[in-house]
Design a protein around this nucleic acid. Structure first.
Lengths: 333, 333
DNA sequence: GACCCTTATGGCAGCGCTACCATAACTATC
DNA sequence: GATAGTTATGGTAGCGCTGCCATAAGGGTC
């Protein structure tokens, strides 16, 4: 029955063995005879014994916690990364401790500081933009650190993601190969989302290589969303200097752009081509599948966990894992 | 400097006070003179002291953890609930401990069992479908329990959500008031998503009231998705017995249905009306905003936390909070 | 000056568990 | 039959913190 709170000692005295033997049975450690194992297990069942992690953690000085700092839950990309993290953690006995930073380095610092009290074995965070304090804590070397999504800078310990600069360049080359010449850009707030800016910079570099440039652009304040993409494309088109292709900061924005074209009677691709980033499901379900770049969000989370848990000590050298990206040709460009 | 691991005792000896005084400064408890507070704080800073939650939890026998069991992270609805939970937790000093059940009661039981080792002050879970063991643990009374999303059954402690049966009925009445007579239904796997089934049952009841019924339906196996909605609508329409309106199990599915109509040249509303459930952003951005029912996911999470934390003891009586729903008229029905 | 109240501080036990070291009963080896 | 290696078990000392109870100093009151 579920009573107060049985302890190891209670189980031990009921089973007629010592506490340490019970502890060994619970943790499946060392040699235990079949008969004592059974006595102990039946005592555990009878008392509804539940181990106390706080006590175990204090005594062994090691936790099974992995701190995860995500910028947002509103953007489906991060829940997908989280799915990968959860999948990587499955069966390892580790628990994620999740915090949402709202893209704010100060908030990240506050969460990290509070997470430190849990003595996590690893910290997973996003991007390379941290406060000095955050950086100092992450550099302490007492736990593994992964910085996800982006591999365009030098990580503290491990980076897993893709080169957003290179993604921008590839986008430029791909679209210029398809014959597009007048490029528009529709984006969202860069101050919070550095990776969107890196893709933009890569795009400009790639265009410059081909002697091309962006003829018109609109930046929507605030986070990316379908609505923001829809409105921002309308704004862009109202400006004049019509482009023949618009690159969006991501698929959410691009789907909004597609809706705007439908609503305004613009024939997509013939009149105006659209290109996104991420390869979300929604874009691929549209009557014209969105032309975009696939990022591997799930894989990023999963790989990060696998590497972090492979060794509890930080290696001498930092490591960067490129999960890559892939052009989805689609039908909108 | 970030050194090994300073303890309260280290701080105390550097500051020239007792450990308990340092503990009080850290926890901001009891009367402390300004001068000792400063001495202690500077010692904390010098040693980079970080409290050890495991030790604190063990000594005080109380945690600041809230266990959260979500069915999925792929469906944006649950990250939105999670946002509400996070928001409700902000500033309370509580930490969420998140687990993903994949809609599987066995998985829920396994996660809950492991979470019990952390002695959470509250457990937040989804729906009323639990294994016997889960139910027994949740009924122990040692912590608060919230069952989210659904209020169509008797909760263990607290239920926060909406009546899905009633949502289905309201949908039926609304659409019949609009003049629709031939109802189609497109849904996803019911065994995992009991709430979708409740809405369906409510829909049928509401139609029966008006002497109407469902003339054609398609259930897609597996979870809901835009792609599934698109395919399932195509299947439904290929069957013959064409409906004049199709009710979808949720907005994801309905957006897929909308895309199918666009692709197949079906004029939405004139030829075929569409109705969803949830009121997701994406549906409202479409050239024709989706006609649907708004559920308040964020609010469900936030309210649940607020009630749970208002009292650490479970009240005598169970409580049910109806966060309601609202018809979004839209343009697709 | 005996009394009480307030403000500030400390001593000590113990939360439930695990690490470390021991011990005891066997079997195997020469 | 003495030594060594297995297998199975136990004793004890903490891990770092907080709860409880005490204590001491200062000031006001009669």
């Amino acid at each position: 029955m579920v009573n107060g709170n049985a302890t190891l000692a209670d189980v031990a005295s009921l089973a007629g063995v010592s506490v340490i033997t019970v502890s060994r049975v619970v943790r499946n450690l060392g040699p235990i005879s079949e008969s004592t194992r059974q006595k102990v297990n039946s005592a555990i069942a009878k008392l509804d014994y539940v181990p106390n992690k706080a006590a175990g953690m204090l005594a062994s000085a090691e936790s099974n916690l992995v701190a995860v700092l995500l910028p947002s839950l509103s953007n489906i990309v991060f829940p997908e990364v989280m799915r990968g993290i959860t999948e990587g953690l499955r069966g390892t006995g580790h628990q994620p401790l999740i915090g949402v930073t709202d893209y704010d380095p100060k908030q990240e610092e506050a969460l990290l500081t509070s997470f430190m009290s849990w003595r996590p074995v690893a910290v997973i965070t996003t991007g390379f933009e941290h406060t000095d304090t955050t950086r100092r804590i992450l550099s302490s070397g007492r736990f593994r650190v992964a910085e996800l999504m982006d591999i365009d800078s030098q990580p503290i310990d491990l980076a897993v993601g893709l080169s957003h600069r290179s993604a921008g360049q590839v986008t430029a080359r791909h679209l210029s190969d398809l014959g597009y010449r007048r490029f528009g850009y529709v984006g969202h707030d860069w101050t919070a989302d550095r990776r969107a800016r890196l893709r933009y910079e890569g795009l400009v570099e790639g265009l410059t290589e081909r002697g091309l440039s962006i003829v018109s652009e609109t930046l929507s304040p605030g986070p990316s969303s379908t609505q923001a993409g829809k409105n921002a494309l309308a704004t862009l088109l109202a400006k004049g200097a019509p482009p023949d292709v618009v690159v969006f900061s991501n698929d959410d924005m691009a789907v909004g752009g597609y809706f705007q074209c439908l609503a305004a009677g613009i024939e997509v691709k013939r009149d105006l081509a659209l290109f996104g980033f991420n390869g979300l499901e929604i874009g691929q379900c549209m009557p014209m599948p969105l032309s975009t770049l696939l990022s591997n969000r799930f894989l990023i989370g999963k790989q990060a966990v696998e590497v972090l848990l492979s060794s509890s000590k930080r290696p001498e050298d930092t490591q960067t894992i490129d999960t890559g990206f892939e052009i989805i040709v689609g039908k909108t460009a």
